[in-house]
Simulated scan of single mutants.
Amino acid sequence: MATPLRVLVHGGGIGGLALATALARRGHTVEVAELREQFDALGVGIIQPSNALHVMRELGILDECLAAGYEWEVLTICDTAGNPLAKIPQPRMDEAPANNGIPRPALAQVLGRAATGAGATVRFGTTIAELADDGEGVDVTLSDGHTGRYDLVVGFDGIGSPLRTRLYGDRFRPEYTGFANWRVTVPRQPEVQGVVMSTGNLAAKALLTPITDELMYLGSVVAETEDFRPDPERAHEQLAERLSGFTGPVAEALAAITDPSAVVYSRISQVTVDAPWHVGRVVLAGDAAHASTPHLAQGAAMAVEDALVLAQELDAADTVPAALRAWEDRRRPRAMFVQSLSRAVLKQETGTPTTPEEDELLKVGIPGAAHVLVKPY
Rank of each mutant, 00 (worst) to 15 (best):
L239H: 04
P49R: 04
E241W: 09
T209N: 10
Q90H: 09
D213K: 09
G365R: 09
A256R: 14
V195D: 06
R173N: 07
P91G: 11
G112E: 13
A223L: 06
E241I: 09
V264T: 12
R57W: 00
A255Q: 12
Q38R: 15
T199E: 12
A108K: 02
V196F: 09
I14E: 02
E237M: 11
V264A: 14
G145P: 08
V184G: 07
T209Q: 10
E349V: 06
Y265T: 13
F246A: 05
V309K: 04
A335V: 06
A240H: 01
P249E: 12
L239P: 06
V110I: 15
E34D: 07
K375E: 15
D79K: 08
T126E: 11
R229A: 14
R242K: 14
I61Y: 00
F246W: 04
E136G: 15
R173K: 10
G299D: 15
P97C: 03
A108L: 03
V195R: 13
G148D: 08
T247Q: 12
P89K: 07
G155L: 06
A20N: 01
A275V: 04
A323Y: 03
T212A: 04
K363Y: 03
V263D: 05
L218E: 01
P49C: 09
A316L: 13
D318C: 02
L314I: 08
G119A: 12
P230N: 12
L66V: 07
E349A: 12
M302P: 04
S244K: 12
E136P: 00
T121E: 13
R123T: 06
D94P: 00
L373I: 00
L341F: 09
G248F: 02
K375F: 00
D274W: 02
H54L: 12
A256V: 09
A20Y: 05
T352S: 14
Y70S: 12
I257F: 05
E191L: 06
G169I: 01
R331M: 14
G178W: 10
G13L: 08
T126K: 02
M56D: 09
D329Y: 11
D315A: 14
G160D: 12
Y176P: 15
V122C: 07
V304P: 00
Q109S: 12
D259M: 08
L341Q: 03
G368P: 02
A206P: 03
G27K: 03
G169R: 06
V283W: 01
R281D: 05
A67T: 15
A291W: 03
I366T: 11
A106S: 15
K87R: 15
S161Y: 04
R234C: 14
A67H: 15
G15N: 14
V264L: 10
R267Y: 01
G15S: 13
A307Q: 04
V279S: 13
A180F: 04
Q189H: 13
P249A: 08
G69S: 01
G286W: 01
M93Y: 00
L85H: 10
A204E: 09
G148V: 04
E224P: 01
R164V: 08
L284P: 07
L107H: 02
Y217T: 13
A115K: 05
V345Y: 06
R188I: 08
R25S: 03
A120L: 11
A33F: 06
A262W: 05
V364Q: 10
M56H: 14
A303C: 07
L218T: 05
V279E: 11
R173L: 13
A370K: 14
G135F: 05
P84V: 05
